[in-house]
Design a protein around this nucleic acid. Structure first.
Lengths: 209, 209
DNA sequence: CTGAATATGACCCCAAAGGGCTATTTTTTG
DNA sequence: CAAAAAATAGCCCTTTGGGGTCATATTCAG
């Protein structure tokens, strides 16, 4: 059974090339190709894989990802674009894209990407993968520098996130409840928050603990 | 000028195969290969790319990444391992690996990876890329747990996580503070918690919002 | 060595949160 | 339609938390 492919690309020339490229392989079958998201949603039927441009008239490819995913929940989405900036890459990934390939990539790699996402993997061209990974590394750096809190404050922060009351924290650390409260006040000031709920949200979202 | 490659792999058989594979290409040159991190650090000299196993005697490949990077700051590190769990993948990336390839990958892909990282990109096999991307998407675990809560309760949960007081929540939802308190009590009962700090921790850890 | 940062502890005040009730209206669902 | 679930709102009382100010011992870095 051939892999069915849908294509959304507004440049007619390039769209034709894509259709030709993908159709040239026996295992793949282009079941539709359109110049806009709206047409694809309206007229396209369930594909295994969608090749999706980002710069499109009216609705962008980024917005279309969720739409396609909700309409065809099993379809894999491969972004195929010239855009290789952090915003577009990360947004596509967060929205659920399974692959992100640059148009300048060698055509064989586009076919590889189709196969890879169809097999349940993800497909990223090396330069895109690089960006994704460096985003990770930056996250780690921020984590490390986030130690504005003193050792004691971090201990108490951990207790707060565990849901302990001040009395329990005091008992656990063998200090008075007053001292716990003072540390908490200092933590609040440093993190610019005003309640335990806020401090827990901040600590977990910014992976401070 | 050929790309110089260093290899750290403790299985002698597989190490030999790797040396043979990489050396078979004119553009690549294996300048050293060792069975442990310690040997590589001591005897190896600056390579362009290091192929690095994770399961190694004494020091693991994960720990070695930082070491190699500090010794040879321009060297690219490609993990080559059978481990494809989240911990190993993410740790390798956070520690600065430029590639993560599974041993079961087709040999040509290993050579591709060397070229890709040498060219300044990153190399991930599709299944690894998949894991990295799903980490990004913050793929909420089971939705069932969240659906214990009613729509209203989820709205209020979101407000709590945002750090709002009951009064603010009431004002925002155009209901009385008492009603907010009642909803919160119900949320606490359903989630088996007893404070806002606990509910925030639970909601964020279990990705309920 | 000395001053700054940290850790400890206390006081007051009152706002906020939490637990236990009951009760009505609306919405959902079998 | 009738029962169940959800949303609304009120009451009581107690505990906890948040903000301000002050004070002392210890630790750490210039």
């Amino acid at each position: 059974m051939a892999v069915s492919v849908g294509i959304v690309e507004d440049h007619a020339e390039f769209r034709k090339s894509l259709v030709f490229l993908v159709s040239s392989i026996e295992d793949y079958k282009v079941i539709w190709s359109f110049g806009s998201v709206e047409e694809a949603i309206e007229k396209g039927y369930t594909p295994d894989v969608v090749l999706l441009d980002i710069n499109l008239p009216r609705m962008t490819g980024l917005e279309a990802i969720a739409l396609f995913k909700s309409k065809w929940s099993d379809a894999k989405i491969v972004m195929l674009t010239i855009l290789e900036d952090e915003y577009n890459i990360l947004t596509a990934i967060k929205n659920g894209a399974d692959g992100y390939i640059l148009k300048k990539t060698n055509p064989q790699k586009i076919l590889d990407a189709i196969q890879q996402v169809f097999d349940g993997g993800a497909a990223l061209t090396p330069m895109v993968a690089k960006q994704v990974l460096s985003f990770f590394k930056d996250e780690k750096k921020e984590q490390e520098q986030a130690s504005i809190l003193t050792k004691r404050e971090q201990e108490i922060l951990t207790c707060i996130v565990s849901g302990l009351t001040n009395d329990k924290i005091a008992a656990m650390l063998f200090i008075s409840t007053q001292t716990v409260r003072n540390h908490i006040k200092n933590i609040y000031e440093k993190l610019h928050v005003h309640s335990k709920a806020q401090v827990v949200a901040k600590a977990l979202k910014e992976k401070m603990i």
